[in-house]
Each structure stands twice: as C-alpha cells, then as structure tokens.
C-alpha cells in the first residue's frame, strides 16, 4: 500500500509552517512522525494533497519546567515523553501513558502533538492529557492561544485546531508525588484501548467511551462529595456514548468503564 499522490513540503520553522498552511489551506496536513497520518493515507481514509513536514522544527522538541507547569514541545516523541526523567517525575501519568503507545519503533517516530491533533478517541495521550488537566498551546497567524484539554477534543478525530493553526506546546500541571491511576483494556499488547481510564487529582478521564475522550463527571462529583471508590466507579459510564465494534458492544464497554475506573482509583501508584 502506498498513499495517493501529494506534494511534499518541508518547513524550516513555525513561521514558515504557518505560511505554508495559509498558502495551501485545508488541502494541506501537517506531518510530524506520521504514525497516525501515513497509515490513514495508505488506507485512503485521509487524502491531503499537500504534506507540510514539520519534523525538523527543532524548536518544538523539548521538555522543560516553566514555573508550576511542565512544558512539552509538540514534537517530543512518545519515547522521549515516556523516558525523560523530568516527565516521569513531574507528570508520571503522562510518561506512563506515552510508554504504552504502540511499540518501540512507533514510539521512536510518533509525537505527542501528532497524537493529540489526530484525536483518536481510543488513543492513550488524549485521555491522559484530559485527566492531567493540560492546557494546549496553539499558534496561528494571529499569534498564540491556549485551550484547555477539556475544550480541545470536540468530536471524532476532531479538535479545536483551526486549519491554519499548529499545536506547539502541551502544558501540564506539575504533579510530582501525587497518586495517579491508569488502566487500559486491550486484547493485543499495546493496542488502542477497548476502554481506557486515566485518573489523577480527582479527575477521571475515559478513552473510547464516546466520539472524543471524556471526563467521568459523575464519578468525579461523587468522589468530591466523599463517596467511596466503588460507589463513585458505579457512575463511570453515565453520559457516555460508546461505540459497538468487533471488540465490544456498548453495554460491555460501560461495564468495563465501571470496573476499570474502580481499579484505576484503587491502584493510584504514587
């Protein structure tokens, strides 16, 4: 399988990438590691006529502390996010999440920004940044703006990113030492989650329980009101809209959500 023909352009820096995006409009797609986009192009599920390769934008590949925030550049690979001491110390939930994506080869190429912009509802990082309460920094022709993870994922493979914007940074609250939990139910090692759960600091996020990653709002409210783990977890599937596929029907996914939320809340490794 090879993708349909396209024009390939390489951006030198963010300003150049923004210029190219403006010039080519929504015919163009940004290419970073390409580990979501290229498989979709091979299957003709995506057919951009222009690819703007941003992989060489070295100014977007970093992990650094910025006050009470851990700032991760959009081009940091899953391998880097999963292994960097700084991420493991300050945002262990995110490091753990990145380390479960695909396999080593995939993690060497895939980037955090690419995964979030792709917004697969079954993917690890969208759920994880939602649980972590991340803020995403988007850059466009008018400059930078910040969007909470809660407002970024708007639907099935859809985000708040405008066609002329680039996701440049992920800002994570520093949570060294805070307990967190992560559960991913899969039939094949390191696959996409049939259902996934990430929790930290009273926030509980679900993967593959709707068209976008979701907060288990009723569970969070119950926890905040002092409910026990089991009682709170019983509410995990409220207001969800899971799909039916080869792996599971909606009723089974709701069951999984309740069980996995209870496990994630109980495990909470420090």
């Amino acid at each position: 399988m090879i993708p349909a023909p396209f024009e390939y352009l390489r951006a030198h820096d963010v300003a150049h990438a923004l210029d190219l995006l403006r010039e080519h409009g929504d015919e163009a797609k940004l290419l970073a590691g390409g580990h979501s986009l290229l498989p979709m192009m091979k299957l003709r599920l995506a057919r951009p006529t222009v690819l703007i390769d941003i992989a060489e934008l070295a100014d977007l590949d970093y992990v650094r502390v910025d006050g009470d925030t851990l700032a991760v550049g959009a081009l940091a690979t899953h391998a880097r996010v999963g292994e960097a001491e700084l991420v493991r110390a300050e945002a262990p939930l995110i490091a753990h999440s990145a380390s479960l994506i695909g396999d080593p080869q995939v993690r060497h190429r895939g980037t955090i920004g690419g995964s979030l912009a792709h917004a697969d509802p079954a993917a690890d990082l969208p759920m994880a940044v939602l649980a972590a309460g991340a803020t995403l920094v988007l850059e466009g022709p008018a400059g930078r703006r910040e969007v909470d993870a809660d407002d970024f994922f708007t639907g099935f493979f859809t985000t708040a990113l405008e066609p002329d914007e680039i996701l440049v940074e992920i800002r994570l609250p520093r949570r060294a030492g805070e307990p967190w939990g992560y559960e991913k139910f899969v039939r094949r090692s390191n696959d996409w989650a049939i259902v996934g759960v990430a929790t930290v600091a009273g926030r509980v996020a679900l993967a593959n329980m709707g068209s976008a990653p979701l907060r288990a709002a009723e569970t969070e409210r119950a926890l905040a009101a002092g409910a026990g783990i089991d009682a709170a977890a019983e509410l995990a599937a409220e207001n969800t809209d899971p799909v039916s596929d080869l792996h599971a029907d909606p009723a089974y996914r709701r069951h999984l959500a309740r069980v996995l939320v209870a496990r994630a809340l109980s495990s909470a490794p420090g």
């Binding site: 390939y8 390489r10 290419l31 390409g34 580990h35 290229l38 498989p39 390769d53 992989a55 391998a79 080593p104 080869q105 995939v106 060497h108 190429r109």
Partner: peptide, 18 residues
C-alpha cells in the same frame, strides 16, 4: 524495521522524503 539515525523504525511508515 531499520535504524533511522540510530533508532529502530518501521520503514513501511516512513516516507523516503522524511
């Protein structure tokens, strides 16, 4: 699988251009 700049990658999901 081949090594690209020393790390393993799956060359069916990398463009020659990249």
């Amino acid at each position: 699988t081949v090594l690209l700049d020393g790390v393993s990658v799956k060359s069916c999901t990398v463009l020659a251009a990249q």
